[in-house]
Design a binder for these strands. Structure first.
Lengths: 218, 218
DNA sequence: CGGTTCCTGACAGGAAGCTGAACAAAAAAC
DNA sequence: GTTTTTTGTTCAGCTTCCTGTCAGGAACCG
């Protein structure tokens, strides 16, 4: 999921961001309402985590404007314990849930996951090449609908390709992806893993560029 | 909504009843567990407000029996401030939310409304994999129709999987589910619990992804 | 054709994972 | 308060299969 986090406290924001990223979600974090609204205007989010007390205005106003635009993106409100009236108003304005500070990060995960489930129908950003579907965040690869397991090294290689779609990736770049910096390898390991990936994903997914490297078909 | 209120303090009960009625909900108010269970057996409620401290037993037992019967009716727990362990146990038993006495009546309204919203249109979040049925809300797992008991750790692991359906869950994520954040564990506990879950749920439900983690079949 | 680059099956060795059993700790029953 | 039962953790030996290497052959290019 792509999640918009609006929170001005650095420590809390960072903790939340890390925890959500660990759950394989993408997080954009802003500390001001105007920044958040810019982001909302240009990007499509599947969930908004909204602190109500922000330096440049009330989070509730953002929520109101959002709903006023007929935008039904799920919103979870974050409030301090003493802002009960805000919380109630938030729910009335169309928030989906709320969390009271200080909250347990697992609690947050659970709520986020609940929202994700409720609105799932549009799962994670999916990378598609022909028959092959790659979900980078959740480590799932499907070929013709069937899930394919990759070993960690195979993942490391494929991941490197996903970071450079459309570009030719050199052999040494791929080597760096396979091995921690410095560890010497004296063999054609990269070629071997390319071969193994091709066997699992299909012959045409990875193209050889002689003398330079490889490229993901797309 | 039709709401069952189980609360033995006359003043509080009356206040809650009036407030909820004012929100256009129907309330049945009982002061004893046995009365409440009679009511539950004969009437269908959409929400239960449950005080944990009652003259004829623990409210938690009512909750347990309810969930044991595979009843997923939302339950909001009402506790005194010092009964924290009860609250945690309540959430573990499948309660949906809790209120700490003394609470603001508007707060109560908000929670009631949130629960109503959350469960409208999504009656029983049932997860099914082959022979295995998992009811995340009520913590009930059935294999081939037979209810299977999981220990708390086993459930914690399984729950972590349910939060990441379709995704590969890393060992460290699972470790975080088993142990409070930070406490380092130097052993194969995760593997042991995976082993035990497989024994209870069937061999094929959890798949190993070597070097990366595990995945729920589905 | 000759030289170079790349592909891929096979294989040994070892790392990662599995699980029965033993022990410790906690909870429940008495 | 003591015993019994359940639950949680550790360990060791076993199994699985990942991984780096090599070698023979295929593809490419001048």
């Amino acid at each position: 999921m792509r999640i918009l986090l609006v929170e001005d406290e650095p420590n809390l924001g960072e903790a939340v961001r890390e925890h959500i990223v660990a759950d394989s979600h993408a997080v954009d974090w802003f500390k001001r309402i105007d920044e958040a609204e810019d982001a909302l205007a240009t990007t499509s989010y599947e969930l908004v985590l909204l602190d109500l007390h922000l330096p440049d205005g009330r989070g509730l106003d953002l929520l109101k404007r959002l709903r006023g635009n007929n935008d039904t993106t799920p919103v979870i409100i974050i409030t301090a314990r003493d802002q009960i009236s805000d919380r109630i108003e938030g729910l009335n304005e169309g928030a989906d849930d709320y969390l009271v500070k200080p909250f347990n990060l697992d609690e947050l995960s659970a709520r986020v996951q609940a929202v994700a489930r409720r609105y799932s129908g549009h799962p994670n950003p999916l990378f598609k090449v022909g028959q092959v579907e790659i979900n980078q965040a959740s480590h799932v690869v499907r070929v013709g609908g069937k899930t394919v397991d990759l070993t960690s090294r195979e993942w490391a290689l494929l991941d490197q390709f996903l970071r450079h779609t459309q570009a030719v990736v050199s052999k040494s770049q791929l080597e760096d992806a396979l091995y921690a910096f410095g560890s010497e390898v004296e063999s054609n390991t990269v070629e071997v893993y390319i071969s193994r990936l091709r066997k699992k994903l299909g012959r045409d997914i990875i193209q050889t560029v002689r003398g330079i490297g490889y490229r993901l078909e797309g």
